[in-house]
């Protein structure tokens, strides 16, 4: 994968042209954001084929909604919200819940990233386990973990995007954390 490096100014110019109806400008936006949108979709639906459909749907929705995009948030943030909604719609349609096999883990961790080789190896192993554990969560719990813990959204943003209350988002996240904790570690002896 060659990440497309596009400067923010260039993105703004492309968005403005796409809003005027330039499909060429929109194509460049799709090229620039396809990997991050696909990555988010894959984490939300844990199925490569479905994630590709979600990405396609998200970009088509973005194209239709572009005239209403006012630039209050960054284009990528806006696109992420559309991706979350598209994932929700398409996931609901899908009855099969594909569990992510360890070999198909979406994580491409780079062990050289950490300064401590032992810790880096531990992180890779934990990421592998975590990807599998995330795949075992239900879609509702996985969504809040992905958006809050991985992408750093606020509780308000998560709640708004998923159409639930902030309290419900917090409760869902708490349950998801307990679930992940249970999957990743042996239960500690109670005192």
């Amino acid at each position: 994968m060659k990440p497309q490096r596009v400067e923010p100014d260039e993105i703004e110019a492309l968005v403005a042209r796409a809003q005027e109806g330039s499909s060429e400008a929109f194509e460049k936006l799709v090229e620039a954001h396809q990997h991050e949108v696909f990555g988010l979709a894959l984490r939300l639906v844990v199925d490569r084929e479905l994630a590709a459909d979600v990405s396609q749907e998200a970009f088509i929705r973005a194209w239709r909604a572009l005239p209403r995009f006012r630039g209050d948030a960054a284009f990528s943030t806006w696109l992420h919200r559309i991706t979350v909604n598209a994932a929700w719609t398409l996931k609901k349609r899908k009855t099969r819940h594909a569990a992510l096999s360890l070999d198909e883990s979406p994580e491409t961790a780079d062990p050289r990233r950490g300064s401590d080789p032992e810790r880096a190896g531990e992180t890779v192993e934990l990421r592998r386990k975590l990807s599998a554990a995330l795949g075992n969560l239900n879609h509702a719990q996985r969504s809040v973990v992905v958006l809050k813990d991985i992408y750093g959204w606020t509780h308000n943003e998560v709640a708004e995007s998923l159409g639930i209350t902030v309290t419900a988002a917090k409760v869902r996240l708490h349950r998801a954390h307990l679930n992940l904790r249970e999957q990743l570690h042996e239960p500690e002896e109670e005192r």
Binding site: Q34, H35, F38, G39, S55, E107, R127, V145
Partner: peptide, 22 residues
């Protein structure tokens, strides 16, 4: 820590996605 680090790991979109969208 591991969840946060997952954000940095990019996933390659399938080939042809841009064409499919357009």
């Amino acid at each position: 820590r591991v969840l946060r680090s997952m954000r940095d790991s990019k996933e390659a979109a399938p080939p042809g996605l841009v064409l499919r969208v357009m």
